[in-house]
Amino acid sequence: MDHSSIAIIIVGILLFLGCFLIFVASVGIVRFPDFYSRLHPAGKTDSMGQAMILVSLMIYEGFTLATIKLIIIVLFIFIVNPTATHALANAAHAGGVVPWRKGEKKR
C-alpha cells in the first residue's frame, strides 16, 4: 500500500463523515420542535460537516494555492455560521417568539 492510496482512504472517510453530519443537520432542522432548538443543528453540526468535506478536499489536493483558498473558506465558515445563527436568534427574540417547553405540541 503506497502513500497516495492511504491519502485516498482518508479522503473517503472524511467525505463520508461530512456527508453524515450534513444529513444529521438536515434531519435535525426538519425534526426539532421549535425555532430555537432548530438553531442547534444549523449552527453546530452543519458547520462541522462542511469543514470536514473541505478538509477532505484539502487532503485530496495536496499543498497548492487551492489549499489556502480552502483554509480561508473553512475559517470563514467557522466565523460566519455562528454569527448568522446568533443574528437570526436575536431577530426572533426581538420579534417575541416564545421558546417551546417540554410537553407542548410541536410547531
Binding site: 444529521v24 434531519v27 425534526r31 426539532f32 421549535d34 432548538s37 443543528p41 453546530k44 453540526t45 417540554k102
Partner: peptide, 20 residues
C-alpha cells in the same frame, strides 16, 4: 457538541428539554 447533537437528533424519542 457534534457527538451530543447526533445522539439527540437520531434518538427516536427526541430527548430534549429546551430552556433559557
Amino acid at each position: 457538541a457534534n457527538l451530543d447533537l447526533i445522539y439527540r437528533t437520531l434518538h427516536p424519542s427526541l430527548p430534549i428539554e429546551p430552556h433559557m
